[in-house]
Amino acid sequence: MRLTNRDWNALGLSALLIAVVCCLPFLTQGYWLSIGVTIAMYAVLATSWALFSGPTHYISLATAAFFGVGTYTVGYGIEVLPYWTLLPIAGVLGAVLAALAGLATLRLSGVYFVIFTLGLAEFIRQIITWVQNLTGQRGIYVLTSITESHIYWQLVGLAALVFLTGWLIGRSRLGFALRIIGDDEEVARHSGIHTARAKVLLFMVPGAAAAIAGAILAPRYVYIEPMLAFTPMLSFQVVIMALLGGTGRLWGPLVGVIPFTIIWEAISASFPNQTTLLLGVSFLVIVYLLPRGFVGLIEDTRHRGREAQA
């Protein structure tokens, strides 16, 4: 499809925003840069999560599994291969894992999918722990010269890539097929859409993105152990941020990621024991007060504003 003027404007504006965002390490180091890294990471995870879960309504809790696979790809690979080759390898591994998970469950009901993805991270974690116990190893050191600023730029770059992918999918036949599936899967099938294939293809996007994010962050951890790489909390936080922002728009999750990360950091700094409670309350707020997230709120307000004018 040809690009309209509006498309060019949106692309130009996005490029400008990314350039501005990339300046952060020049302005500040330390606390705000580390918040920046966290926000960029969740922007990648939540946006790619929403690309799949938004149209399909499947709630994936596999983020931690993909992320951990990426982290361990770097952990095991850094001794053998140059760092830059490990990122695409992590992406491929994440996508393959997602495809396998998708083939096993996407034909079944949503509940099965949730359980399957929740168990996946735990499963891989137990296997890695077991293998490490057998070999008498506890964790792995990832020692590189990569700095916090490098990690930040890589994550921003990955986020840009995820946005671009989402935008391209939205304009493609796959994107159109997914909107139809989201509306009525029966009609989709009878219109000639291979629904299972479309869903599996799409699930590979968050799989690859989360694995690459995990790989990028591995040098930051320095010492990797299974509990850290596969923490289930990560999956839940991503779900909350994406839903809080709203999955109806490509930029929706980002609107959830920024405030939630800042609040989360503040609360876990002053009340470290209350983060679980906060997570629970956020889920309830989303279901009962913000079913379409901030995006829904913004659109409703705009809609009302337009009606008031008319």
């Binding site: 709630i59 839940f236 679980t276 409670l277 997570l279 629970g280 989303i286």
Partner: peptide, 15 residues
């Protein structure tokens, strides 16, 4: 909705 709500309740209970 019920998946999200009961996950929420579960976290609240743990908290």
């Amino acid at each position: 909705d019920s998946i999200l709500t009961t996950f929420g309740l579960s976290f609240v209970a743990v908290g």
